[in-house]
Design a protein around this nucleic acid. Structure first.
Lengths: 152, 152
DNA sequence: AATTTAAATGATATAATATAACATAACTTT
DNA sequence: AAAGTTATGTTATATTATATCATTTAAATT
């Protein structure tokens, strides 16, 4: 399962949120940034930077890596996409602006990534860091396995 | 804080554990594998593959990347080291063979990595995956922040 | 012990991922 | 319009990792 039922809706929502967030913060949602966000959202699979680059090339002349990485950095910075460290890839954020502790379940069969943000898990992480007198700055939690469709 | 009080003890313990685990499993703890494990354990900082390669070069002629990556893969496979995905780096496992759900607190100031394996956190992860009908295969949890020494 | 097999290493090349550095353009503020 | 800032263009290169095939070493089998 790579696409959800009405995937166009996912994309248009993501773009709308991009616009809103940039407006709020007085940032520029430039054509490149918009296009890269669209490409990241093309599926619910993590998108590789160089795959985005290729897709971009089919439309926009001859883009180069920094173009894509800059756009991705901007989107990361502003919570519009997440980086999946275990895959060196990027996924759209399902609810940008709402929180900063997001966790990921990554299906190793269909590659779909599901974002989750259970407070329980967040609390457990807080407790553990406190017990170790560790000051948390950011968290990367990636659970690899089989999603419901793929384990059935 | 990069070294613990008696760091030679850490190293020798790690090597001893390497020997034991290989013996148990009928695997070969070859000279290269031993050396790479020693180099990973040189500090409690995550070690980069190419840094290991350089150190290896100072002792062993002219090693090449596959040599290091093969040894690291072997050590990963057998639970002797962990890969820190957010840093593309490797740390020794503090208690190999004892469990498979390890979490990491990574100090962004001194780079020390602390392994933790609180059952609470493991349980919270299990609950979350169950709620999502997700079958867990592996977990990567990396908490970035400041350790006690560095946040004081 | 010699033969066969499997595992590990050597060696070369290249793939995949990411950033540095400097030039130019576009947009903002004054 | 001038100055300053932000974004993009452009070239080069750094960093991380693997594919492939040859050779060696060790283990198992005869």
């Amino acid at each position: 399962m790579i696409h959800c039922e009405k995937h166009n809706h996912c994309i248009s929502t993501a773009i709308k949120q991009g616009e809103e967030i940039c407006n709020e913060k007085g940032l520029k949602f430039t054509a490149i940034r918009r296009k890269v966000l669209e490409l990241v959202w093309e599926t619910h699979k993590p998108a590789k930077a160089y795959d985005i680059l290729e897709k971009l090339a089919k439309e926009d002349g001859a883009p180069v890596p920094p173009t894509v990485y800059r756009a991705l950095d901007f989107l990361l910075q502003n919570g519009l996409v997440h980086r999946i460290n275990s895959l060196n890839a990027f996924v759209g954020c399902s609810h940008p602006g709402l929180h900063n502790q997001c966790f990921f379940m990554i299906c190793t069969h269909c590659e779909k990534v599901t974002e989750c943000c259970t407070t329980e898990l967040g609390k457990a992480i807080d407790i553990t860091t406190k017990e170790n007198s560790f000051t948390r700055e950011s968290v990367s939690l990636e659970i690899l396995g089989a999603c419901q469709s793929c384990s059935a």
